[in-house]
């Protein structure tokens, strides 16, 4: 079953067309990596799907619910109620974590389950502790974000997203704010989530990681999907010239 269906998605900032006609599907259990040069619209694409930006055209369907439809040539968003339902089906992990600095690690994770999903606090804390254990942060529950390393903060933010039990988890360059050592610990977490069958869409500059973990890679440039397919194809000999060129520049560093 398609968890996410994006068709002909367009987004403009003034005269600048950031997304031109983007279409792709995500099936349950898929791990999709989106790669491409800076300014290619990768982040904007995630932000449109996560309702942080309003798209200008196209359709988006999340878990069978219409989020954005085309009616008489106009992009029409679903009702506020549906949009909120969709919001809770998906989670987003940000490049710079965006943890709530005034809450402890535990409270960062439980705040939404308690006040949005109206879970009772004890249950929410139990789930949060399990997630923290899984992230290797069981001892950090009462720490504040500023007391953690970047890698630890990012793991908390992954736990925070997982606490709402999303159907799809989006990552917007989750390791770009981290040094190489800390990058490894985040990639490990994402890999283990992939093994558990979590559906994920990851915007990343970690090419080796994209090749290892993703079962589908999308290469974007200038608001368009240039090429997509299995990692073996995009990272192989048969990739298009543009993809090869981009990846080569990457390996040169």
């Amino acid at each position: 079953m398609a968890m996410l269906e994006v068709k002909n998605l367009c987004k403009r900032f003034g005269d600048l067309e950031v997304l031109k006609d983007i279409s792709f599907n995500v099936e349950q259990g898929n791990v999709i990596a989106i790669i491409g040069p800076s300014g290619s619209g990768k982040s904007t694409l995630l932000r449109c799907i996560n309702q942080l930006e309003r798209a200008d055209g196209g359709t988006v369907k999340v878990c069978g619910m219409d989020m954005l439809e085309q009616k008489d040539g106009k992009a029409v968003y679903a009702s506020a109620k549906t949009l909120q339902q969709i919001r809770l089906k998906i989670g987003l992990v940000f490049q710079n974590f965006n943890l709530f600095p005034h809450f402890t690690v535990l409270r960062n994770i439980t705040e939404a389950p308690v006040h949005v999903l109206k879970q009772n606090r004890a249950d929410a804390e139990k789930t949060a502790m399990q997630l923290l254990e899984k992230m290797g942060l069981g001892t950090k529950a009462n720490a504040y974000p500023c007391e953690l390393s970047g890698g630890q903060q990012q793991r908390v933010s992954i736990a925070r997203a997982l606490a709402l039990k999303p159907e799809i988890l989006f990552f917007d360059e989750p390791t770009s704010a981290l040094d190489p050592e800390l990058t490894g610990e985040i990639l490990k977490v994402i890999k283990s989530l992939a093994k558990e069958g979590m559906t994920m869409v990851i915007v990343t500059h970690e090419m080796a990681f994209a090749r290892d973990v993703a079962d589908h890679v999308i290469f974007m440039e200038k608001g368009l999907i240039v090429e997509e397919g299995a990692p073996s194809q995009l990272f192989g000999e048969n990739a298009t010239e543009r993809t090869k060129q981009f990846l080569q520049r990457f390996s040169e560093g």
Binding site: Q51, L88, F94, N98, P101, H102, A112, H115, V116
Partner: peptide, 25 residues
């Protein structure tokens, strides 16, 4: 801005975001 965006993604309403996340800071 990230504080508002994280709050929105977690499903907080605008009022909740203001009183729980923004105002204490």
């Amino acid at each position: 801005k990230g504080q508002y965006e994280a709050s929105a993604c977690l499903g907080f309403s605008r009022t909740q975001t203001f009183f729980r996340i923004i105002l204490p800071q």
